[in-house]
Write a protein that binds this DNA or RNA. Structure first.
Lengths: 210, 210
DNA sequence: AAAAAAATCAGTATAAATACGGATGCCGTT
DNA sequence: AACGGCATCCGTATTTATACTGATTTTTTT
C-alpha cells in the first residue's frame, strides 16, 4: 500500500516540525514537504504531483490559508485541504467549509483525531467533528442583530426584491402604490447601510435575511 | 427530574404514532401532542407552553417544515426543532440548519441515535451527525457548474457590483469605459439567468460566486 | 489555421432606481 | 395624552440600469 502523501503548511516552524515528527509514527502517512506559506506550498505542489492533501494553517504571511483554499478550488486541484487552526469561531469554520476544506481541526486536537481525519479525508470524504459542525451551524443560523431590524412588511418586500421583481411588480402584487414600495426599499437600504440594491442584497444574505 | 416534553409533527399518521410508541420506552421523554401540520402545531404550542422541542417533518400540507422553522425563529420561540426527514440532500439540510434546526435526522435513523439527539438538544446544544454535516458541507462548497461560468473579468466586476459600486465607479476603477462594464453586467445577468441586478446578487451568493 | 470565447467600445431609447423633500392614519408604549 | 415606529402615499429631478442592435481586438481552444 502506498502511503498518504501530504504537505504541512504553517508559518510556525516548531509546530510544523512537531507535527512532522508526530506523523512519522504512522506508516501509512508520508510528509513530503514542510512549508511556511501559500506561495511555497504551490511551488512544492508543482514538484510533487502525487500529494493527496495539505494540512493547512489559516494565519500565514504572504498567502494565507483562505487564499490557498480558493486557489486550490479555482484550479480544480485534487489536493484535499485539511485546515488546522487555533480559531474555533463559526465564522472561520463556515468560510473554510464553503471554500472546499475537507476538515477543520483545532490545534489542540489529539493525534488520534488527527490521524483519523487524515484517513477519512484520504478516502475522499469530508469530516467535520460534531462540535466543529455545531459551531458552524450556530454561526449560519445567527440572526441576532438582524432579528428585529426590519419590519414584517419590509422583510416581505426585501424577499420580492431579491426575487428580481421591480418596484412596480411588487406594488401590484401587494396591492399598494409603487411609492410605498419605493419608500420601503429606501428604508431597508438605510437600515442595512447599503449604497444601493446590489449591496443591499449582498448584506441581507450575509445576515440570513433572505 | 421532569421529562422532556415534545410534540411530533408529521403528516403520516403511521409514522407519527409509531414514533410515539417508540418514545414511550424512555422515561425522560414525554410526547404531549401528535400533529399533522404546522398550523395544528402552533395551536398545540399555545396550549402547552412548556414544550421543549418538536420532532418536525419537512414535507407536510398547509404549513410545511420550512415555514415552521422560520416562524419559530421569527417568534424567538424557545421550542427547539429537530427535523426528521427522508431527504438526505445537502440542499435541505443546509436550509434547515440556516433556519434554526437543532438537528437533522433521517427517517431511517435508529432509535439509539434519536434518543441521543433528543437528550443533546434538550441541553440546548445542536447536534448534526458527521454524515449529515458532510452532506451539508458538500452542498455549501459546491461550485461545479458555476466554476467556469464567469470569466475572471466578469467575476471581478461582479464582486464590485456586490460592493455597491455603480457602473461608472467600476469603470473608473478598472480603467475602462462605462460601456464595457455595462456589457459585462448584462452578460453576467444573462449567464446566471437573473432578471436584474438584485436577483443576480442573490443567485451569485447562492452558488458561492461572491 | 480556424473557431470560439473574452474583453473592449458604441448609439439610442426606455425603464427603473435613488435623492431630496414632504404627508397621514394607525398602533402600541410610556 | 403624547410619542415613536410602522405602513401608507405624493412630487420633482437626477442618476442608473436595462433593452436592443451592433462592432473590433485579443486570447484561448480545437
Amino acid at each position: 500500500m502506498t502511503p498518504i502523501k501530504l504537505i504541512i503548511a504553517d508559518d510556525h516552524e516548531l509546530f510544523r516540525n512537531g507535527l512532522n515528527e508526530l506523523l512519522k509514527k504512522y506508516d501509512d502517512v508520508q510528509v513530503v514537504a514542510l512549508v511556511e506559506d501559500g506561495n511555497v506550498l504551490f511551488q512544492e505542489l508543482e514538484k510533487h504531483t502525487d500529494v493527496a492533501m495539505v494540512l493547512l494553517d489559516i494565519t500565514m504571511p504572504n498567502m494565507d490559508g483562505f487564499e490557498v483554499l480558493n486557489t486550490l478550488k479555482n484550479r480544480n486541484s485534487q489536493v484535499k485541504p485539511i485546515v488546522i487552526s487555533m480559531h474555533d469561531e463559526g465564522n472561520y469554520i463556515a468560510s473554510c467549509a464553503k471554500n472546499g476544506a475537507y476538515s477543520y481541526l483545532l490545534k489542540n486536537t489529539d493525534q488520534e483525531e488527527l490521524i483519523k481525519t487524515i484517513r477519512i479525508v484520504n478516502d475522499g470524504k469530508k469530516y467535520f467533528h460534531p462540535q466543529i459542525a455545531e459551531k458552524m451551524i450556530n454561526y449560519m443560523s445567527e440572526q441576532s442583530v438582524s432579528e428585529n431590524l426590519l419590519s414584517n412588511k419590509e422583510k416581505e418586500v426585501l424577499g420580492l426584491i431579491a426575487k428580481g421583481l421591480t418596484t412596480k411588480e411588487i406594488a401590484k402584487q401587494l396591492f399598494v402604490s409603487s411609492r410605498t414600495i419605493e419608500t420601503h426599499r429606501a428604508n431597508i437600504i438605510k437600515k442595512l447601510e447599503a449604497k444601493n440594491t446590489a449591496e443591499l442584497i449582498k448584506k441581507a444574505t450575509e445576515i440570513n435575511l433572505i
